[in-house]
């Protein structure tokens, strides 16, 4: 299950619903936030893609191979120190599951308003076997300790297995849950 055997996730970036080209979005970008995105782009070049720069929010798309390095740089170089929220978004038409980290900072007062939205994508399988299929991502737990329970939640809700996460267990779902991960789009609520 090594990562290089899979398809690169950024094959067709223009179809991603989340992605917005910054030049399309607005003419004048907030300066502080632009600086942050520039720093990342400067460090990593075209490995990262700036999804959006809004007031107080900077969005970055990274491929799954680079997410660990980028996160490490975000922590060490940019002073972001904790993850507020980890959300998964299922895109069945792209056959991908995006995992979005909202990273904030407590220790740097200038960054208190800021959130860095780090988005990465994992391959999605039609018939998921949580933990045993190609839906895998490297864990960020050794960088941001606060993702521990969030990643467990993503694992059970989307079936994204986080490689290197030491405690990848069920958290919220019932112990006898045997259906597909419930927050995927193909898990339909009855009657809806």
């Amino acid at each position: 299950m090594s990562s290089d055997s899979n398809k690169p996730v950024e094959e067709k970036p223009e179809t991603k619903p989340v992605v917005k080209k910054p030049e399309e979005k607005s003419v004048e970008l907030p300066k502080f936030e632009k600086d942050i995105s520039d720093k990342i782009v400067e460090k990593f070049g075209d490995k990262v893609e700036v999804a959006f720069v809004k007031k107080d929010r900077v969005g970055i798309n990274v491929s799954r191979e680079n997410v660990h390095d980028v996160a490490e740089f975000i922590r060490d170089g940019l002073n972001y120190d904790h993850v507020e929220s980890v959300s998964g978004v299922d895109y069945p038409q792209d056959n991908e599951i995006a995992v979005v980290y909202h990273i904030g900072s407590y220790s740097d007062p200038t960054l208190a308003r800021q959130l860095l939205v780090l988005s990465t994508r994992a391959q999605r399988e039609e018939n998921p076997i949580p933990g045993n299929d190609a839906t895998r991502l490297p864990t960020l737990r050794d960088i941001f300790y606060s993702v521990e329970f969030h990643e467990r939640e993503i694992f059970e809700m989307f079936g994204v297995y986080f490689e290197g996460h030491p405690d990848n267990r069920r958290l919220l779902l019932p112990e006898d849950w045997a259906d597909i991960p419930p927050l995927r789009k193909d898990f339909a609520i009855k009657g809806r």
């Binding site: 933990g131 045993n132 267990r169 112990e175 006898d176 045997a178």
Partner: peptide, 14 residues
């Protein structure tokens, strides 16, 4: 807690 989980995960959970 560990009904449906693969073996490597179970070992870490036990």
């Amino acid at each position: 807690m560990t009904t449906e989980l693969p073996a490597d995960i179970q070992s870490s959970s036990s």
